[in-house]
Computed example of a mutant assay.
Amino acid sequence: MKVQQEDNDKKGEFYIEVEGNRAALMTYTWAGKDKLIIDHTEVNNTLRGKGVGYKLVAASVNFARSKNIKILPLCPFAKSVFDKKPEYSDVLA
């Protein structure tokens, strides 16, 4: 499963497609030039329990590190992942 990204400089999402449909996605909004606010995560029932949500959060962390930006996880799922993964604390806003 490959995580893809779409971004229009105001909003964006990390997503996974299955058979041409977005089966999992995590949306974010830019807060200035150096911060992302993760506001929603959604995983299709067929992918639940397979760690797909964690893959989306990991993709956002890798993106933040590569761009030297911070993440504010307002989405309850994303926040719970950041709480469980202290190795992601370097990108927290």
Rank of each mutant, 00 (worst) to 15 (best):
M1N: 13
K2Y: 12
K2E: 15
V3W: 12
E6S: 13
E6R: 12
D7A: 09
D7R: 13
N8Y: 12
D9K: 15
D9W: 14
K11V: 14
K11E: 03
G12C: 09
F14M: 06
F14Q: 06
F14H: 07
F14Y: 13
F14V: 07
Y15M: 09
Y15P: 04
I16A: 05
I16Y: 03
I16G: 03
N21S: 15
R22N: 06
A24W: 01
L25A: 06
L25P: 00
L25G: 01
T27F: 02
T27R: 11
Y28N: 05
Y28C: 09
Y28I: 12
W30L: 14
A31V: 15
A31S: 13
G32F: 15
K33D: 01
K33L: 08
D34L: 09
D34W: 14
D34M: 09
D34Y: 15
D34K: 15
D34F: 14
K35L: 11
L36S: 11
L36D: 06
I38L: 15
I38F: 13
I38M: 12
D39F: 02
D39L: 03
T41N: 01
T41H: 02
T41I: 07
E42R: 10
V43R: 07
V43P: 09
N44Q: 15
N44V: 14
N44I: 13
T46K: 14
T46H: 03
R48V: 13
R48G: 10
K50I: 06
V52P: 05
V52M: 09
G53T: 12
Y54W: 09
K55G: 11
L56Q: 02
V57W: 08
V57S: 08
A58I: 02
A58V: 06
A58E: 15
A58F: 08
A59R: 10
A59E: 11
A59I: 11
A59Q: 10
S60Q: 04
V61F: 04
V61P: 00
V61I: 11
F63D: 00
F63E: 00
F63M: 00
F63L: 00
A64L: 02
A64M: 02
A64V: 06
A64T: 05
R65Q: 00
K67L: 02
N68Y: 02
N68G: 00
I69M: 00
K70V: 08
L72A: 05
L72M: 05
P73C: 14
P73L: 13
P73H: 10
L74Q: 10
L74H: 07
C75Q: 04
F77L: 06
A78C: 03
S80F: 03
S80V: 01
F82D: 02
K84I: 05
K85F: 08
K85H: 15
Y88T: 05
S89M: 08
D90R: 06
D90T: 11
V91K: 01
L92V: 14
L92C: 04
A93C: 06
A93H: 08
A93V: 13
